[in-house]
Computed example of a mutant assay.
Amino acid sequence: MAPPGSRRWAYVRIMADTILGGGLGFYVMHRIETSYKVRREERLRRYEAHLLTKEKEAQQLQDEGCREDQAQLLSDS
């Protein structure tokens, strides 16, 4: 059987390792979450910019179509 001081030291090491491991695990997960949120927000910004570009292109095509229709009506008159 191990001496009492050795057993006490083993318990201290186990508790310290558990606390430090928990702290390290929390830090790592926090870093992963924040980096994920930053990447997600960046993807959302790019997607919104893409949608705005598509909307502007659609509006320009619609405006050109209206102008061509007006030009056609004026030339027929």
Score class of each variant (00 low, 15 high):
residue 1 M to W: 08
residue 1 M to V: 12
residue 2 A to D: 09
residue 2 A to I: 04
residue 3 P to L: 11
residue 3 P to F: 04
residue 5 G to E: 14
residue 5 G to H: 11
residue 6 S to C: 06
residue 7 R to L: 15
residue 9 W to P: 01
residue 9 W to H: 11
residue 9 W to I: 13
residue 10 A to S: 09
residue 10 A to R: 14
residue 11 Y to I: 13
residue 12 V to G: 00
residue 13 R to F: 12
residue 13 R to P: 00
residue 13 R to T: 14
residue 15 M to H: 09
residue 15 M to T: 13
residue 15 M to C: 10
residue 17 D to S: 12
residue 18 T to G: 14
residue 18 T to N: 12
residue 19 I to K: 07
residue 19 I to Y: 09
residue 20 L to G: 05
residue 21 G to C: 06
residue 21 G to H: 10
residue 22 G to P: 07
residue 22 G to N: 11
residue 22 G to F: 11
residue 22 G to E: 14
residue 23 G to M: 10
residue 24 L to C: 10
residue 24 L to A: 13
residue 25 G to C: 04
residue 25 G to H: 02
residue 25 G to I: 00
residue 25 G to P: 00
residue 25 G to F: 02
residue 26 F to C: 08
residue 27 Y to E: 15
residue 27 Y to N: 10
residue 30 H to D: 07
residue 32 I to Y: 08
residue 34 T to R: 13
residue 34 T to I: 12
residue 34 T to D: 09
residue 35 S to K: 10
residue 37 K to N: 09
residue 38 V to M: 02
residue 39 R to H: 03
residue 39 R to V: 01
residue 40 R to T: 01
residue 40 R to Q: 06
residue 42 E to Y: 00
residue 42 E to M: 01
residue 42 E to L: 04
residue 44 L to T: 03
residue 44 L to H: 04
residue 45 R to D: 06
residue 45 R to I: 02
residue 47 Y to K: 06
residue 47 Y to W: 06
residue 48 E to A: 04
residue 48 E to Y: 03
residue 49 A to I: 00
residue 49 A to S: 07
residue 50 H to S: 13
residue 50 H to E: 15
residue 51 L to I: 08
residue 51 L to Y: 02
residue 54 K to E: 11
residue 54 K to L: 12
residue 55 E to R: 15
residue 56 K to H: 06
residue 57 E to Y: 00
residue 58 A to H: 07
residue 59 Q to I: 04
residue 60 Q to T: 08
residue 61 L to R: 12
residue 62 Q to K: 11
residue 62 Q to T: 09
residue 62 Q to C: 05
residue 63 D to V: 10
residue 63 D to W: 07
residue 63 D to L: 11
residue 64 E to K: 12
residue 64 E to D: 13
residue 64 E to V: 02
residue 68 E to I: 05
residue 68 E to Q: 13
residue 69 D to I: 12
residue 69 D to H: 13
residue 70 Q to L: 15
residue 71 A to H: 08
residue 72 Q to F: 13
residue 72 Q to R: 14
residue 73 L to G: 00
residue 74 L to S: 05
residue 74 L to V: 06
residue 75 S to G: 03
residue 75 S to T: 13
residue 75 S to V: 10
residue 75 S to L: 10
residue 76 D to N: 10
residue 77 S to M: 10
